[in-house]
Design a protein around this nucleic acid. Structure first.
Length: 679
RNA sequence: GGCGGGUUAGCUCAGUCGGUAGAGCAGUGGAAUCAUAAUCCACGUGUCGGCGGUUCGAGUCCGUCACCCGCUACCA
């Protein structure tokens, strides 16, 4: 790994929401640990990131809230930048893709590719909203299904008959953005011929096969196996980087082409800022640079195939040497979901808890080979049983002892015994193990090995029994404390990648600066001289009690202030006569059983007074068959029968549901005879 | 049902090339009393989800079944 320079990037967070623990564990924390580690090793590291601020989702959010896209990206850029700062991300530069430097970079690449005849054009018919003045993504147009006549079908697929079609086939289309009737217009698009790079990419990937992570390789190979094809790189929209020469046409460069270039733009911005505008090239255009992009698994295809293809085509740029993508982190067994409140806001978390215990917990539970979970109880246990009890306590007992018996200064070493020497020698062994883990992107193991020094130190302290030798053999005791203090110095360096704030506290406590503790080699140098004063003990990690954790767990899934609940649009008005066509009756469920091979369907036998009906209802996700027996419900009694999973359904049972909840059965609030009419 | 991922100790998870199953935490017992009731030592008979196959040998490779998760489909 002896490259001249190392370029580290983290996936650009999309400026349409706040980053959460999952993002952190996947792409940011490992990158930061890696960058910090490599800097300690004395390597020339550039670590950049920035906000990804274009794309249709930001535009949609802005329209929904009635603000400008700029308002949206400003909000989340500032929010995320603050969160990154508080969690200790050591970016050399944090940029944003809305800056001129990035627009210029993206345009330059686009123009160069277009001018050399690489990019292809295609023309497709697409729906255009004249009021919103944009082409409509499939999800933002609704109309009547050309197959079954269902009147709330989306642009790509009918929810009713589940058939696929082109959005232009939709009858009576309506824009969900403006309610306007869209026009069919020719949409001309630029494409990047990714398929042409198939062989070169295969060669590139297999050339790294022995070094890259298995989960990354498998995913990339599966893409390569199914064959690469052209990718569109322009879209019709008025939010983004205008396609050069077509500024008036409302055409922008598609996000996947330009966003990855944000890494380069961020590097340029950094170079400009430090007054050496050409310096970014040393990291991007020098063969001796090792480029490592950190991402989550959703980004693998971009960073392993598309971006490398672009870099190859551009020429003179380094390709990723390794793409150590992580899987996803879940929260207490479920996916993070902002809309249901199943999430923890990073900034809110950091208002209550310090950053390092979170960094430690996420690092120890990083989704390196498969999805993993964040549990509040695990966070508590890691903080209390490991950071406080093992690391914190060792620091505390050592510093306190030195103040009590040696006036708070480092005692001189005098005639160290083999046990003392053996302990000091452990520093180097552990440092080598930790190094090896970081170089191989094994962050969990790196942190475990790091803590092993604290464990070894506690054992040493116990075995040497300084509280006894202080009375019997002061020289022996002095040696013990000398070595223990050197362990504190070593720990200060060793923990820096994962616990940077604690490392800073330790430097203060030990009266040392970054010159003394800012290099990996310092771990083995035993740099605290005899007579060096150390500070009074401080609590490094406060314990967290059970009640606090129960409170935090209870907060999950409870929506805080003003959640953005989207209510489906009201349907067309009907007359009382329309409604009276529907014959609703009270029925009593007399039999209920699951439909075999179906996840959501139950077969019900319902007594509606004058006859019994067999119904197939999609309520299995919320209803247990046994509990339904004897319950009164409302059914649509005059519905034309249909067959589902080979079972005839003679009616429909009424239930309420939202996107997140339900279905919940409707029932009369007090009992009434079966067959009663509902109106 | 289709596609993808998964199933290893009480919990969270490692396990590289097929070669006697590991770590951290929790738990039990003991030691110690400098220290945030912290620390240290000792303690694991795990049907490696089931069954079959390849192999001298399978947690690992192949087949198959079960269950779990995600996406998707059926909820007319």
């Amino acid at each position: 790994m002896d490259n001249k320079r190392i370029l580290v990037t983290s996936a650009l967070p999309y400026a349409n929401g706040a980053i959460h623990f999952g993002h952190l564990a996947g792409a940011y924390l490992p990158a930061d640990m890696y960058a910090r580690y490599q800097r300690l090793k004395g390597r020339d590291v550039l670590f950049v990131c920035g906000s990804d601020e274009h794309g249709v989702s930001i535009l949609i959010s802005a329209r929904k809230e009635g603000v400008s896209p700029q308002d949206i990206i400003d909000r989340y850029h500032v929010l995320n930048m603050r969160a990154f700062d508080r969690i200790g991300m050591s970016f050399d530069n944090y940029s944003r893709t809305s800056l001129p430097v990035h627009h210029e970079t993206a345009r330059e690449w686009f123009v160069e590719f277009r001018d050399k005849g690489l990019l292809r054009q295609s023309i497709e018919k697409q729906l255009y909203d004249p009021e919103a003045r944009m082409f409509l993504p499939d999800r933002f147009v609704i109309g009547t299904c050309p197959h079954c006549g269902y009147d709330r079908a989306y642009g790509d697929q009918c929810e009713n008959c589940s058939k696929y079609y082109e959005q232009t086939e939709l009858l009576k289309p309506k824009s969900l953005l403006s309610d306007a009737v869209p026009e069919i217009r020719d949409a001309r698009h630029w494409h990047f011929p990714l398929g042409e790079y198939q062989e070169r990419l295969e060669h590139y990937i297999e050339g790294h096969a022995d070094e890259w992570k298995e989960n990354v390789l498998q995913q990339v190979r599966s893409w390569l196996k199914s064959g690469l094809s052209d990718r569109p790189i322009s879209r019709d929209m008025d939010w983004g980087i205008p396609v050069p020469g077509e500024e008036e046409a409302g055409k922008v460069i598609y996000v996947w082409f330009e966003a990855v270039l944000g890494y380069i733009s961020s590097s340029k911005e950094w170079a400009e800022r430090i007054g050496q505008p050409e310096k970014w090239k040393e990291y991007w255009c020098d063969e001796e640079t090792r480029y490592v992009p950190f991402i989550g698994k959703d980004n693998i295809v971009f960073h392993c195939l598309m971006f490398p293809a672009m870099l190859m085509e551009k020429g003179g740029y380094v390709l990723p040497a390794n793409v150590p993508a992580n899987e996803f982190l879940n929260l207490e067994g479920k996916k993070f979901s902002k809309s249901t409140g199943w999430s923890i806001e990073l900034n809110e978390f950091l208002d209550t808890y310090p950053a390092d215990p979170l960094r430690y917990t996420l690092a120890m539970n990083m989704p390196e080979t498969r999805d993993s979970d964040f549990f509040w109880k695990d966070f508590q246990a890691r903080n209390n049983n490991e950071l406080a009890d093992i690391l914190g306590n060792f620091v505390n007992r050592t510093v306190h002892f030195v103040h009590k018996h040696f006036d708070g200064v480092v005692p001189a070493a005098d005639g160290l015994l083999p046990e003392d020497e053996a302990f000091l020698a452990r520093f180097g062994e552990i440092a080598a193990q930790v190094s090896d883990c970081y170089e191989r992107f094994r962050f969990r193991d790196a942190v475990t090995a790091t803590m092993n020094l604290a464990r070894a130190a506690n054992k040493y302290f116990n075995d040497r029994e300084p509280w006894k030798t202080i009375k019997s053999d002061r020289r022996h005791c002095a040696n013990t404390m000398h070595c223990s203090l050197q362990a504190l110095h070593a720990l200060t360096v060793l923990i820096e990648p994962v616990l940077p704030f604690t490392a800073e506290k330790l430097r203060t406590l030990l009266n040392i600066d970054h010159a003394s503790a800012g290099h990996w080699d310092a771990i083995v140098l035993h740099r605290l001289p005899a007579g060096h004063p150390v500070g009074e003990r401080t609590i490094l990690f406060e314990k967290i009690d059970d009640a606090t954790m129960e409170k935090e767990t209870a907060k999950l899934g409870v929506l805080s202030e003003g959640p953005e609940i989207v209510h489906p649009e009201l349907k067309e008005q009907i007359t009382i006569d329309d409604f009276m066509k529907i014959d609703l009756r009270i029925g009593n469920i007399i039999k209920a059983e699951a439909v075999p091979k179906s996840k959501k369907l139950l077969k019900l036998i319902v007594d509606i007074g004058f006859e019994t009906r067999q119904l197939v209802a999609g309520i299995a996700t919320t209803c247990v068959p046994e509990d339904l027996i004897g319950r009164q419900v409302v059914i649509v009694a005059n519905l034309k029968p249909a067959t589902l999973f080979g079972i005839e359904s003679q009616g429909m049972i009424l239930a309420a549901s939202t996107e997140e909840e339900g279905p919940v059965l409707l029932a009369p609030v007090q009992a009434i005879r079966e067959g009663a009419i509902v109106k």
